[in-house]
């Protein structure tokens, strides 16, 4: 069954790829044929944002028993449960970072062909680069802690702290009046309904396929993380023979001269 689903997915991805080459050109671009990179560029920041919000939600779940009472929906009672929320959060963060890199890569390619430079300090490009730096710091923070509980709590705190600046940089900053006039990047394509017809259908198909792939990759990452926890538990039990490590009832007397 799983093989059939994977085959259908691969087939649809092939159809989307071919379709993305067949959609009509958009005349107002400098290189109309290349404007179709939008079809692959657009789903990346959308999924990046969704994964980031999911990671923030999982971070709140790590904290809920400590302080955030308004968000306490159900108690997590042990370290293992928190470790599992941490794995979910970091899975989302890792995937979101991949999408952020893809967004930047497709954006830079578009910039070179349409605007004539790989990097033109366009406010939208620059603000997204800052977002990339913010989340690079998230991974640097994770590497700096060895203890899993501290790693989970401190990186979750940073993830929550970084959410507001990230949303500002992604959604508000490029639309500030004094910034918008400096940018070549369109800001109202979706809201003004400029993406329509075959372009809209194709981009929706690619977005859905990317979303399915994301769910699949997320599940793989989370399952691998959970398996790691189980493995650690298993080795821990081997060390202590599954019971109290201190043997009871037998004490060997040791003389002070020894």
């Amino acid at each position: 069954m799983k093989t059939i689903l994977k085959a259908i997915f691969a087939l649809l991805m092939g159809v989307a790829t071919v379709w993305s080459y067949k959609v009509p050109d958009i005349a107002q671009f400098q290189a109309p044929g290349f404007a179709r990179i939008f079809l692959w560029h657009f789903p990346c920041p959308m999924l990046f944002t969704f994964l980031l919000l999911s990671a923030s939600w999982f971070s709140i779940r790590i904290f809920q028993r400590i302080t955030l009472k308004p968000f306490a929906f159900g108690p997590e009672t042990n370290a293992e449960a928190k470790a599992k929320w941490d794995i979910r959060a970091v899975a989302c963060m890792e995937l979101s970072y991949i999408y952020a890199l893809l967004t930047m890569a497709t954006g830079v390619l578009f910039s070179e062909i349409q605007w004539g430079a790989w990097w033109s300090w366009d406010p939208r490009q620059t603000s997204f680069l800052i977002v990339l730096l913010i989340y690079a710091a998230y991974f640097a923070l994770r590497f700096a802690y060895v203890d899993p509980a501290k790693k989970a709590a401190h990186s979750a705190a940073y993830g929550l702290l970084a959410l507001l600046p990230t949303l500002f940089l992604e959604f508000k900053f490029p639309r500030l009046p004094q910034i918008e006039q400096l940018s070549l990047h369109p800001t109202d394509s979706i809201l003004a309904g400029k993406i329509k017809g075959e372009y809209a259908q194709c981009v929706i198909l690619i977005l859905v396929l990317f979303a399915i792939m994301t769910v699949y990759l997320y599940n793989l990452r989370v399952r691998a993380g959970f398996a790691e926890i189980e493995l650690e538990k298993y080795y821990g039990n081997l060390e202590t023979n599954g019971s109290d490590p201190t043997p009871t009832g037998v004490v060997r007397p040791v003389s002070l001269s020894e």
Partner: peptide
């Protein structure tokens, strides 16, 4: 960053990108 190994450098490294906006 206070409880991390390379805390002084890490604190600056995580603070600067957050403060750019």
């Amino acid at each position: 960053a206070a409880q991390a190994a390379n805390r002084a450098m890490l604190a600056a490294a995580i603070a600067v990108p957050l403060l750019l906006p």
